[in-house]
Design a binder for these strands. Structure first.
Lengths: 344, 344
DNA sequence: ATTGAAACAGACAGCGCTGTCACCGGACAT
DNA sequence: ATGTCCGGTGACAGCGCTGTCTGTTTCAAT
């Protein structure tokens, strides 16, 4: 099958190649009848525009890059997060005709910024989606903004920087989870806070405090333990809490990994979940459904956030330069087996 | 910073643009001294070749596509697999200057083949890496081979088709795991088989049987339960095995998800792992280290396999058309907490 | 010194599209 | 009847590289 070019289509349709180009690119000012003639020719010849030629002539790469923290930098990879973001981003890419490049990178690395600059110079993407926690690393955000490449940040936590962003309602849903636990009769609800460098996760502590207040419960310092988002820190927190003289009846962890750590320790200490202890997490990673009892948690709409981010990029390509503010995609409470009424 | 073009570099270096091109593309027949002059000019101007122009002129896209089964098609996403493959593929891409496109797709879908053909026509990749289980779906393999795009299959199970492939030694390491369990004194070792559509997983049953024989143990039909790779099927298998009159002292599952299912049931039935029951899995997914007790399993070298696959593609680009046969990357036994000496 | 082959360098013509601008013809106003 | 505007279309010149082919230099072997 010899590949058809735009010239073949133009000839078959009896128009100039420029008109074919206009049809392919959905440009205005083509008579409906002409458009159809061209479409037919395209179908008949199974014509596909040559991306390289198009990119060269249009000065666009029709490429977006999704940049996220390299999972291999951690003890326990957060693969689920990445894959869900990729799915969302890909879905949106297919609506325009953009391709998606993925770029894991380590933000602790000395030269993230120059690495990213090199990436941008090499592939010249039409836009970038920057996932948390990179989305609140000033060095990274700055490096990208300096190149002038359109940037959408995902879950930046604080709304610093001037590029647009997409986020979820961490604070609100954390409050909701806290109120849910309170509604089950729990009075002593502990919280395992996450790595404060991850801004979005930090917001969850605020939400927890909101929730306590809204439920008429008092916040107690000894019930808030600092973690670092890892399973291990969840274990450490649980050990501290469960071996204290007056242990909590519910533990809400700022992410599922830490919640899993809590459950491991409860299991080891013979504390029955959920009969003696309710455990709740946050994120809804795959593990949440894999462990026993299945974890009550909050589904973070990663896929929709990434999709929204790419759609914002596509919009910005269309010259629509009016910044339309952040997009907030709400999370959903997933009530499963690890939470139950407080023991009396 | 106005972007430098090849003309600028040529002028600064005092050579023709063709010579600059030769240096950039590491072509032979350039005097060392000339090469240096050009390199200096490139550095001074921070020149980056324009991919679109290069692709257009060279009739190459400098793009590889990694195609894998869409994880969202399943109950429990196998995100870890995907991310590890991506990591390996990306690593190899960086050694050449190739970019990687990812393409999840559902192989149960009616039109996988036409979907893939469209993908290929659209992006015109220089090569494709096809991951299991798609790598043994004739319709998919056929569709790709028909386009003439270089194809490397990962873990195709059977060596059908004529394109090259990369695999691991499923059969051998399964035998090894079985021998390990036997060496711990286990006499009744059960096996939870996986979805036979996933060829590589099917090989593990063979390995289990090899291992029994090598350890002088007899294979017993009632100790081999059919599963379908899901947690649920692991649970069902475990229920069947543990509630039988003469339960096994060790259960080896063909993948970690099923092993996790086994452990959930053991937990529920009050069977202590590893004291009363040893459990072993296969794949080394993240979950293996997240659950308690941590799962003894086999690390499947996904990242290295994907890397090897892309390296094969790069080699094939270099005109090296001599098919050098399959590449086998061996797996590694990961002995953790879920296996121990047989109870007496 | 002479020769031939191999190493090295450049001129030139595209690759297959899009941006720009010029052009044509009909609707409408003058 | 003439001018004006604008939707619709095409001619043409590149976009920034690489492939091909041709020319020039180098150097070992006569």
């Amino acid at each position: 099958m010899p590949k058809a070019t735009i010239d073949d289509v133009a000839e078959l349709a009896g128009v100039s190649i420029k008109t074919v180009s206009r049809v392919v690119n959905r440009e205005p000012n083509v008579r409906e009848q002409t458009r159809e003639k061209v479409q037919n020719a395209i179908t008949r010849l199974n014509y596909r525009p040559n991306k390289a030629a198009r990119n060269l002539a249009s000065h666009h790469s029709h490429l977006f890059v999704l940049i996220y923290d390299d999972p291999s930098a951690y003890e326990v990879p957060s693969a689920g997060f990445i894959v869900r973001m990729q799915q969302g981003a890909l879905r949106a890419c297919r609506t325009g005709d953009y391709e998606l490049l993925i770029h894991p990178c380590r933000y602790r690395n000395e030269n993230v910024d120059s690495e990213i600059r090199t990436l941008i110079e090499r592939v010249r993407p039409d836009g970038i989606v920057l996932a948390a926690p990179l989305s609140n690393v000033p060095r990274v955000v700055g490096a990208i903004e300096a190149t002038g490449t359109p940037l959408i940040r995902v879950s930046p936590g604080k709304a610093n920087g001037d590029s647009q962003y997409v986020a979820t309602n961490d604070r609100e849903f954390s409050a909701e989870m806290t109120r849910y636990l309170a509604s089950l009769g729990h009075k002593r609800i502990a919280f395992v806070a996450g790595n404060p460098a991850h801004e979005a996760v930090a917001n969850r502590l605020e939400g927890y405090l909101d929730g306590l207040e809204q439920s008429g419960l008092e916040a107690r310092d000894e019930l808030v333990i600092k973690g670092d988002n890892s399973i291990r820190s969840g274990e450490a927190a649980a050990a501290l809490l469960l071996e204290s003289p007056d242990p909590p009846t519910a533990i809400f962890a700022a992410n599922d990994d830490m919640a899993a750590g809590v459950m491991r320790v409860a299991n080891r200490l013979g504390v029955k979940v959920p009969d003696q202890l309710s455990v709740a997490g946050c994120d809804d990673i795959a593990l949440a459904q894999q462990i026993y009892p299945a974890l009550t948690t909050i589904n973070q709409p990663l896929s929709q956030m990434a999709e929204a981010a790419v759609l914002k990029l596509i919009k910005s390509q269309r010259g629509n330069n009016d910044v339309d503010g952040p997009t907030i995609v709400p999370g959903t409470l997933m009530i499963r087996e690890s939470t139950a009424a407080a023991p009396d």
